[in-house]
Write a protein that binds this DNA or RNA. Structure first.
Lengths: 193, 193
DNA sequence: ATATACACTGAATACTAATTCAATGAAAAT
DNA sequence: ATTTTCATTGAATTAGTATTCAGTGTATAT
């Protein structure tokens, strides 16, 4: 393995550790030292990989933004046509919630991205998080569901926003308490029906 | 007005200002100086009223805990018997959401209490926030609704928890964006139906 | 009218955590 | 085999805020 590859690997390890801690303890309650210890690595070395705590957060958020964008590219228009909006959302949630246990990466990332959009976090990270707009995407899906008569009436954008805010709330609750059982995705989609 | 009363009033002003800023900018992003400036008063004087930032937060949370408890005492058993669980929750949400605009106090308090329960905040405040358990209360209501056939099946406690997590998520979203329209409470209760 | 208490100020200090840095050793390149 | 590069360390420094404090003036009590 070349040196560059090793460095890249180490970098990834830091990003992953930071993601976990940022979600589990919160950004401000996570000390650079905590991350270093968890990786593990010396505190000073952290700054060989990221120039600041703020930049580290930014990189985590950017990774999340990339992931979300490529996830979206994987969704083809005919997929959308074949599956009903409610079933699509149920499926999405089911997958996300199942990650919570075994492979918390995606789950944590979802939670962090939501937090970056909302709560007090450095401005630049918020901007990046806001640049992937899940709400507008889903608004179209909601409108389609309304036309098909499977969703109730109302401002589709607002409904989409509430739906995701709701999901965010539940995900954060789960992130706090590892023992919490996952809810049935159908319940959450019930917000739109 | 006696000196003691004046002091009490000033104290309340600080608590209210802190509540607003903690919710709007987040606890860690709110400097003691920000609060002092907003009250307004000198930075040093803040410590004449509260011995630390942490204690200030704790007092705000305690105030919220008191409020919640007395709110609960106002609910008589016959009230519960007369109104259906779904209608009770819709009414509660309607009131809460309407506060968001004119009288943000209650609204902010709700958001802060939820954050104190979950996100990284000093341990003592979290304990106090956790001491008012809205989830267990509502679980009973959910169970009753299930018996009456107006709510779907499932673990009542988990459903209650998801309901409130959902509300929390939506409230936080609204706290972030003042221009966001309030959702229809019926949508949120749809999570249980 | 005088004395006392205390609300009040803002500059000085203390503290905590991020960040830097000089030194070290091991791997890669020559 | 030697040189060069660079990952690595942890103690020292810096930076940003919370917190303290020595005074000051004004409202209340006597």
């Amino acid at each position: 393995m070349t040196r560059k590859e090793q460095k890249e690997e180490r970098r990834k390890a830091i990003l992953m550790t930071a993601l976990t801690l940022f979600v589990e303890k919160g950004y401000y309650d996570t000390r650079i030292t905590d991350i270093a210890e968890a990786v593990p690595m010396s505190t000073g070395l952290m700054f060989h990989y990221f120039k600041s705590k703020e930049e580290l957060l930014l990189e985590v958020v950017k990774m999340g933004a990339e992931g979300t964008k490529s996830l979206r590219k994987g969704i083809t228009p005919d997929m959308m046509a074949q599956v009903q909006p409610d079933q699509y959302l149920v499926g999405f949630l089911r997958k996300m919630l199942s990650y919570a246990k075994d492979e918390p990466w995606v789950f944590h990332m979802f939670v962090l991205m939501g937090q970056a959009r909302r709560t007090g976090m450095p401005e630049e990270s918020r901007q990046v998080a806001l640049s992937v707009d899940i709400v507008d995407d889903t608004a179209g899906l909601v409108a389609k569901g309304q036309k098909d008569g499977i969703f109730h009436g109302g401002d589709a954008k607002l409904m989409s926003r509430c739906f995701w805010a709701s999901v965010q709330g539940i995900m954060e609750e789960m992130a706090m308490d590892k023992d919490m059982k996952a809810p049935n995705p159908e319940w959450i989609v019930g917000l739109l029906r």
